[in-house]
Amino acid sequence: MSRVDALKHCDVALVRKRLIGLHFWERNLAVGGALGSGKSEWLLNLAHTFLQKGEGIRIADVDITNPYFCVRERAEALRAEGFQVITSPGNARWGDAPALSPEVSRSIGGSDRLFLDVGGDVRGGMALTQFAPLLKKEGITFLLVVNAFRPQTNTLQKIAVLHAELEMVTGLKITGLLSNAHCLGETTMEDVAKGIDLAKEASEALGIPLLYAGVAEALWCAVVGSSEERATLAGVPLWPLERRILLPWERGVVDA
């Protein structure tokens, strides 16, 4: 069975709903990590799963480092799906240093779940600094993406440095890790396993739980399918990760 055929016979939405129930989640959630590590993909996957569970979801674009490959690019499409999306007002959202909307602060203590799309590396984490006192009061799940194939996080020492710097800059504690070892369409389960090994090493060294390891949807369905035995790797639940942030040359093209 090809990866495309496997995907047609695989209820990944149901799998993600089950996986989301394995952990406690604060009303506010942020995902940090190195530039290009897959932060926004993970944030949107988690947000979409909660939306499918019937919860009200707000997504706030607080990426001050890069106007591309982030939530603001997909704002209208996300609103059409049922999300509430907070971006900088007007054309300011496309600036090199976009102003953050005051609506972010008002949403932190709201009834909807708030997902904060943070920029890459330590500079991106600075956007959370101004919200830290309120986030500490209301509670936040702050996740760090570990991508074994990005130069900023391909060793335990580099992960530890990024972890320490993000906590220092934001004033917030990182509460969980996500393994996101990927090489775009060339990713294999061997790559996923290598990423898990490094992420588990970081989890043990930093004393932070490793929640999931991301696997592309089609690969997940082809390898895992309905087998509970293959739904984890080295004891880590495998999350069927949907590509929701596309590269410029992929937009408008159906991935077969």
Rank of each mutant, 00 (worst) to 15 (best):
R3W: 13
D5E: 15
K8C: 03
H9M: 13
D11C: 12
R16P: 10
W25V: 06
E26C: 11
A34Y: 10
G38M: 06
L44I: 01
G56R: 12
D63Y: 05
E73V: 06
E73L: 12
A77V: 14
A77P: 03
L78Y: 05
E81A: 09
G82K: 07
Q84P: 00
V85P: 00
T87M: 01
A92Q: 13
D96A: 15
L100E: 04
S101M: 01
S105R: 13
R106V: 06
L114T: 15
V118H: 01
G120C: 08
D121A: 05
L128C: 07
K136V: 11
T141A: 08
T141R: 01
A148K: 03
T155W: 02
K158T: 10
I159F: 06
A160W: 00
V169H: 07
L178T: 13
S179W: 01
T187I: 07
D191M: 14
K194L: 14
I196N: 08
D197P: 01
A199E: 08
S203Q: 02
Y212I: 10
G214P: 03
V215K: 00
A216R: 11
A222M: 12
W239P: 02
I245A: 03
L246Q: 05
W249S: 14
R251H: 04
V253Y: 04
V254P: 10
